[in-house]
Amino acid sequence: MLRRMYDWCVAAAYRPAAKWIMGTVSFLESSVFPIPPDAMLIPMSLARPEKAYSYAFLCTWTSVLGGLLGYAIGALLFDSVGQWVISAYGLGSEVDAFKEYYAKWGAVIILLKGLTPIPYKLVTITSGFAGYNIFLFILFSIITRGARFFILALILHRYGDRARTIIEERLTLWATLAAVLIVVGIVAAVYVL
């Protein structure tokens, strides 16, 4: 199944609809969806390294727009939708402590957590709930999400053929490591918050 999904993403790199799908995944991942856009960004950039930067740009702006949806969920719907998303990650009791940290460390939290495997939706929803300055939230989201996707694009553009060979030879290993990073990110979010 993993190989089929990877092959689909590689083949999709040549279809116009794939960019829409990747943009949608990137948008939703910043507010409610559990799968990061890297799951499409990496195979599509490996298939077409010359497009890696345009894919990174797409992921950046759709992630920031999705972050605004997450911010709105936190600001306007926290008691219903936002609390449900936060509870799904087992972080319901830590939100108040996280809100206090925002008053002092909001910029650092957004910048650091946007680069890590900690689900970004936790940052976006809590930013809205905490009432963090929306303009600073947008600025820091552009910086951190852009850095994450463009660093990945740089590596994939520069080492695309070699990286593709390495990844395809041990796809299960790399997918397992990615899954472990996501789980570690979620666990870290639980204990860091």
Rank of each mutant, 00 (worst) to 15 (best):
I138T: 09
A18P: 00
S26W: 01
F149L: 09
L177T: 05
A103D: 14
W84V: 12
S26M: 03
R15P: 02
I155A: 15
V180F: 08
L68D: 04
E169S: 12
E169P: 00
I134C: 01
M40P: 00
T116H: 07
V190A: 08
F150D: 05
R15I: 04
M22R: 02
S54D: 12
Y71E: 10
E50I: 01
V10N: 05
V192I: 13
Y101R: 14
T60P: 00
F98H: 03
L177H: 01
G23A: 09
P119V: 06
R145P: 03
K19Q: 13
E100R: 11
L152T: 15
T124V: 11
L154A: 15
I166F: 03
Y6H: 06
L115T: 10
L58R: 04
V81W: 07
V190D: 13
T116V: 05
A47H: 06
G90W: 13
L171S: 02
A11W: 02
V190E: 11
E100Y: 02
A153P: 09
A97R: 00
D79C: 04
L154C: 12
S127T: 12
L69G: 05
I21V: 13
S30Q: 15
S141F: 00
V85I: 15
P36C: 13
L41G: 05
G146T: 07
A189W: 05
A75W: 08
L136F: 05
E169I: 01
G131T: 05
L122W: 06
S80Q: 09
A12I: 01
R48T: 13
P43V: 09
S63R: 01
L2W: 01
T144W: 02
A75Y: 11
D79E: 15
N133V: 09
